[in-house]
Design a protein around this nucleic acid. Structure first.
Lengths: 292, 292
DNA sequence: CATTTGTCTTTTATCGACAATAGACAGTTC
DNA sequence: GAACTGTCTATTGTCGATAAAAGACAAATG
């Protein structure tokens, strides 16, 4: 196999989901835009929808024949892009223990473990190296630097610089900037989650990322925005691997966010700095506590 | 060809250069450390030295038979690692014009242009993407964002944050830290170049990189140190492509460096900030002037 | 007995090939 | 005649294979 058709399978599944509500489908081009794929892939999807009897397709006529059932979908495991599979496998290794800092990383071994070719693993490691957790010896192996206390401190040092500056820049966004309604939407979700915190506290992780990314984007600086990827990765896996006290932690963070959001909306530099500093300090503490 | 033996050829050339001064060679292991290669490569070098009659090699006896001549060396073009060849070729394209921001980048075309496989070009582009000059559309092509005014401004914004903080940290290095003698050595070279500025002003570029890297390293933060790669790349090619007024510019920068170095040595935070700010301001101006 | 060397195994760097996907162009439909 | 579809081409993503280079281990040397 030269390449898995995960793009097709994933888009197909999303398209089948659409069929649950629609009676007919729009043009191929429009579908392509909606699903984020090319017309080639759209046509492959339509072909299969027809083949499994979900759709009558003739030129512009695309009529839904029946409601989709569970077996119409591809299994979820088959829709993940290879790069994500490799990332998950690698992160599990790093976090699940048995991974001492200083350890060598073997490309071939990783590739076999995940059932991929070495090329894909190499590309992953190169992309991953920007997170500062691994390092390459030229013409030789990679070294695991590891999720250490030093790593967390260096990460948060830069994060504090960047986020303080971004938050300050936020105050100067023009009134008609799309960030303001997005901030409103984010605030609304904070309230919604807080109202039903017992059941919804796990939604915080995703909301956290959405909020801080919005703040970083206000810097209008590609290096600052790109750096947020590092923070997002670290916190993403942090939330997955450290669920102790999650509800209490998330409740606290949600409340800090609301203060932070109010400060942003006030456009008062001193209030913004105070709220941002306060939240970053407690985020750092949470992160450090998860490191041995 | 699966892989070019550029490591061998480069190490061989460096070894031949050593023969000009030595009458015999040390152990294989020691040679490996000196040349930065494995024993396997060292033995390949010794074999060839013997084959071309430069060395009598029997077990531990490695006696130089004659002085090397020009034709003993491999041509310099054959010693460059593929990744450097690709980088140079790509940067020439970006800077030599005909490269509009927004342009698509074609992996296959680049690969053919430089005579490499697509895998190597892909890996280069992934590594290069951290410089913020290109961006990937998933499952599709790369986009050239280009060496624009915005790029330069975003770069210098982050640089100023990082270097100010690093310079401040420099003042707190312990007295016996190796950075202090290194700073002395750097200062001495500044004076040496200034004394013969007419002939040596081109040496500034390399010294500039050495000095600022030393400052950044004082931050002891991998993200800050890694970011210096971006600055180094930009200035490296900036110096190569913009030689107008080079002597005057370099003279000014050398003098600013000396003030900056004196401030670092004084450990006076205010003086350090003032000197650093002043130098960064003029570095930014120089950079901006080279952008249309 | 601590180095050094000879030999063998493992790993990385790179290529060419090929399926999946994107994208271009011309003909068709409303 | 603007939007849509059918068809064809170009490009990307991934793999397996292979030479270069690294590295491990045992025998040899001084």
């Amino acid at each position: 196999m030269a390449r898995q058709n995960t793009v097709f399978k994933d888009a197909f599944n999303r398209c089948v989901k659409m069929l649950e509500e629609w009676r007919s489908l729009p043009s191929e081009m429009e579908l392509g835009v909606t699903l984020g794929v090319s017309r080639t892939t759209v046509r492959a999807i339509l072909s299969r929808l027809e083949a499994v009897g979900l759709l009558a397709w003739e030129k512009r006529r695309k009529i839904v024949l029946r409601k989709p059932v569970a077996s119409d979908y591809f299994p979820a495991e088959e829709t993940d892009p290879l790069s994500e599979i490799i990332e998950r496998s690698f992160m599990r290794r790093i976090l699940a223990g048995g991974a001492e800092p200083g350890m060598q990383i073997n490309e071939l071994e990783l590739a076999r473990e995940v059932g991929a070719g070495t090329t894909s693993v190499r590309e992953f490691l190169i992309r991953f190296s920007r997170f500062g957790l691994i390092e390459k010896r030229p013409n030789s192996h990679w070294i695991l630097k590891g999720f250490t206390r030093d790593f967390a401190l260096e990460l948060t040092e830069v994060r504090e610089m960047f986020e303080l500056r971004s938050a300050a820049a936020f105050a100067h966004l023009p009134d008609d900037h799309p960030a303001w309604p997005e901030l409103d939407a984010i605030e609304a979700r904070h309230h919604a989650i807080l109202r039903d915190i017992e059941r919804r506290y796990l939604e915080f992780s995703e909301l956290d990322e959405r909020f801080h990314l919005l703040v970083h984007k206000a810097s209008r600086n590609r290096f600052i925005v790109d750096f947020y990827d590092v923070i997002a990765l670290v916190f993403h896996y942090h939330y997955q691997w450290n669920k102790a006290n999650a509800r209490a932690r998330n409740t606290l963070a949600l409340k800090e966010h609301l203060v932070y959001i109010a400060a942003l909306r006030s456009r008062d530099p001193a209030a913004i700095e105070e709220a941002c500093r306060h939240h970053l300090r407690s985020a750092r503490e949470t992160l450090l506590q998860s490191i041995p």
